[in-house]
């Protein structure tokens, strides 16, 4: 069995591990690094529950092998809160009740983060497109879209405060 020496940044922290190269990025995050916020749903890229941010792009961590993330930066849901303080996305989802069973939530929040990084004032249509790879079977999406709209305005307020 071959081993692969994997180096990547996870939530800003450098990681070096010798792993079985057949492991998916999802397996390394959950089973080795114990970052269990990232969920496995369908295991074939249909549901988006395993979404993580890889070098500023949203990807399904079940669709790539961990070595493909070698030398790159990964952000998971655990990387969002800072010193125990929720980030605007998490705060907004809580406020509007965009979370029911919670299984899709990490992927949804990361999808929102990528969207707002590229497009700080998204329309409802932009939001729908940005979360089109993430399934939710509880909320009917309305609260999630609302949560992302609130996150956008929270971020704008924060940016305004820091500029002032």
């Amino acid at each position: 069995m071959a081993q692969f020496h994997l180096e990547m940044k996870v939530n800003g922290k450098p990681i070096a591990l010798d792993i079985d190269p057949g492991l998916r990025l999802l397996d390394v995050l959950r089973d080795i690094l114990h970052l269990t916020g990232t969920k496995e749903g369908c295991g074939e890229g249909e549901c988006g529950a395993c979404s993580v941010i890889l070098d500023d792009e949203l990807v399904d961590s079940c669709l790539i092998l961990a070595p493909q993330a070698h030398g790159r930066g990964v952000i998971t849901i655990e990387g969002l809160a800072l010193n125990g303080e929720l980030d605007p996305y998490q705060q907004a989802f809580l406020e509007v009740g965009a979370v029911q069973c919670g299984y899709c939530t990490p992927g949804m929040i990361l999808a929102a983060r990528v969207l707002l990084n590229h497009n700080p004032k998204p329309s409802k249509q932009d939001i729908a497109k940005a979360i089109s790879g993430n399934l939710c079977r509880c909320t009917g999406y309305a609260k999630i879209v609302q949560g992302i709209e609130i996150a956008a305005s929270l971020k704008e307020t924060k940016a305004g405060v820091s500029r002032a």
Partner: peptide
């Protein structure tokens, strides 16, 4: 093709 996540890969 697929979804944003799939198109990124």
């Amino acid at each position: 093709v697929g979804s944003p996540q799939i198109r990124n890969l």
